[in-house]
Design a binder for these strands. Structure first.
Lengths: 135, 135
DNA sequence: TTAATAAAAGACTAAAATGTCTTTTATTGT
DNA sequence: ACAATAAAAGACATTTTAGTCTTTTATTAA
């Protein structure tokens, strides 16, 4: 689940990319990756077609999705809600000592992830020619 | 590992507290909690004595420790370092598109956790009379 | 110095996350 | 239609994390 941001944008260049190639470029086990991509595909975040010349790709619409969508799809949105200290009673009415501070941090993070689209992130990435391998 | 912030400060009131009482107040399985507390105790973040009238407590020194110390002790300091996107190449020289933004968020979080001591957090908590149970 | 108390330590089990393998289904070129 | 390609699906194995239980060790009070 972790190593996953990588993929979405490997396929951003219009053409379709087979999972073998992706897995290789990202060095993540092929089948494992497949499972995750299938999940993202089911959720409409990426697209895929079967058969020869098939593979994964991302259409223009999906390129406009914020990074936050990927995170939510993969990890749920716990990151965006809830008390940072894990205190369930913590709320606006009854805030824990760090409630306000945490909120600031969280909001900043959310804003960042919501305003950055997949396409954008990718463009910038390519500009800096970063590889996406693990190490 | 998650439900743990709770404890440290349950014992902030000077006297020693048995694990059974803590476990109950925090509703976390006793033995599991014990393991964690032992860990924290070994690392010097909390104190304990055996025998009758023994239990866990926190001395004045430890009360002055920042919350960040607990997090580091329990989860390691991954939160405080590394690229938010999980890109290993990401660095000052070769920053990923969100590097700067992430850094800001991370720094804010660090500052917060470093400047808030256990004692302080606890005092504020008690003032707001929050319970520490899970729900 | 012994009995009771309470944490420390370690072996063990269960659950969840991660990763692998096999079969099925859809697509396309021949 | 058929063979080849590639993702989808799902069964299975491994590893990590969480949680339980039992035994040991230290402390204290009688």
């Amino acid at each position: 689940m972790r190593a996953v941001f990588y993929i979405a944008h490997r396929t951003t260049d219009g053409s379709r990319v087979g999972i073998k190639e992706i897995a290789e470029q990202v060095d993540s086990p092929e089948h494992f990756l497949a499972k995750i991509l299938q999940d993202l595909s089911r959720k409409g975040l990426i697209q895929s077609t079967k058969g020869p010349n098939g593979g994964f790709y991302i259409d223009d619409q999906s390129l406009k999705r914020p990074l936050a969508d990927i995170i939510k799809a993969l990890d749920g949105d716990d990151i965006f809600t809830g008390c940072g200290m894990g205190l369930s009673q913590c709320s606006e009415k009854n805030p824990c000592p760090l409630h306000k501070e945490f909120k600031k941090v969280r909001n900043q993070l959310s804003r960042m992830l919501l305003t950055t689209t997949i396409g954008q992130f990718n463009k910038d990435l390519l500009a800096g020619h970063l590889s996406l391998k693990k190490e």
